[in-house]
């Protein structure tokens, strides 16, 4: 604005910006330092392996949700998608073989994403509408999963892919984490370096501005919803492999855990800002926190309280960053 803004003010703004911007990463480093001091086990190979295999299901869902949130929507159907993908892949395998079952659930994911997107396009839905529509779709999917499995957990039959997901790995990294890393890399590159990625940010920053600048806002958001459903399908496969069974209620509460992880990483709830890297940091933060709490012997309710507090802190710092910006 003018050249005379004194450098002290600018310096201070810079430091404050850095603090709130790199906050989640600093918190993660701090938490790891604390973890390694509290418990000798924390930095052991076995424990790190545990953390990585525990965050994978949450992580893939969070990756997809990152797209949806950046493009200005919300996706509450991922819990239903995860449950249904699990029971379907297990249920279809005996009659059609694993490959067909796998293709079927992938197609189902894409189809659900498109359905979400089309419904929202038809009603010209905004952020609020996306919450309600995807919640409705997710509720139906959860019910379908219950109907299909008659409410029982279904036991997995042997398949090479699922047993690799459960026990396999590359260079000491669990297979599920490898899948997570591959997904993260692909989604990061798309978001950061392609026209499609740019469109995601534009659609989320302001649908009105984007629409009147020729951005196909609803198409872009539909793609984001497909991505998120697809990631939830992968999450369902991982969950099924890890528990060696498919529970029709596996995805209950999954959607909000995923949203929380994305928000903790610092991706804006109101769209237009965020990144895959942030989401990965958020997911790691949640994973490491839970792990440290277990290591010091705290129970589930206490873990839940800690996670709740982190969500609050993440949102408050997000608001503050925004008011610093304007």
């Amino acid at each position: 604005m003018n050249a005379t803004v004194n450098s002290a003010v600018r310096e201070r703004m810079h430091v404050r910006f850095l603090l709130s911007d790199a906050g989640p990463l600093l918190a993660l480093i701090l938490l790891m330092a604390i973890g390694s001091m509290i418990s000798p086990v924390f930095l052991s190979k076995g424990n790190l392996y545990n953390i990585l295999s525990q965050i994978a299901v949450l992580g893939v869902g969070a990756l997809g949700m990152t797209y949806v949130m950046i493009s200005g929507f919300f996706d509450l159907s991922v819990g239903g998608v995860l449950s249904l993908a699990g029971v379907l892949v297990v249920g279809l395998q005996p009659s059609f073989g694993f490959t067909v079952a796998l293709l079927a659930v992938v197609a189902m994911g894409v189809g659900i994403g498109c359905a979400n997107g089309l419904l929202l396009r038809t009603i010209r839905g905004d952020f609020g509408a996306s919450i309600m529509i995807t919640f409705g779709v997710g509720t139906i999917l959860a019910a379908v999963a219950l109907l299909y499995s008659n409410g029982y957990s279904m036991t997995v039959q042997y398949s090479r892919f699922l047993s690799w997901l459960e026990r396999g790995g590359v260079a000491g990294i669990p297979a599920v984490a490898v899948v997570l890393m591959i997904c993260a890399a692909v989604l990061h590159v798309i978001l950061r370096y392609t026209v499609l990625g740019r469109y995601m940010y534009l659609a989320g920053a302001s649908a009105r501005v984007a629409l009147s600048s020729g951005v196909p806002v609803y198409t872009i958001r539909t793609i984001a919803l497909c991505m998120s459903a697809l990631m939830a399908v992968i999450g369902g496969l991982m969950e099924t492999a890890q528990t060696a069974s498919a529970s029709p209620v596996a995805g209950v509460g999954y959607e909000l855990d995923v949203v929380a992880a994305v928000a903790i990483g610092g991706t804006s709830l109101s769209g237009g800002w965020g990144s895959v890297v942030r989401t990965i940091v958020g997911v790691l933060l949640v994973g490491v926190l839970n792990n440290v709490l277990i290591l010091v012997g705290l129970s589930t309710p206490e873990q839940m309280i800690a996670q709740g507090l982190i969500i609050l802190v993440a949102l408050i710092t997000d608001r503050q960053r925004k008011s610093n910006l304007s």
Partner: peptide
């Protein structure tokens, strides 16, 4: 402000 520009991008 509402239709023309993304003010903070």
């Amino acid at each position: 402000k509402n239709e023309g520009l993304l003010l903070s991008h």
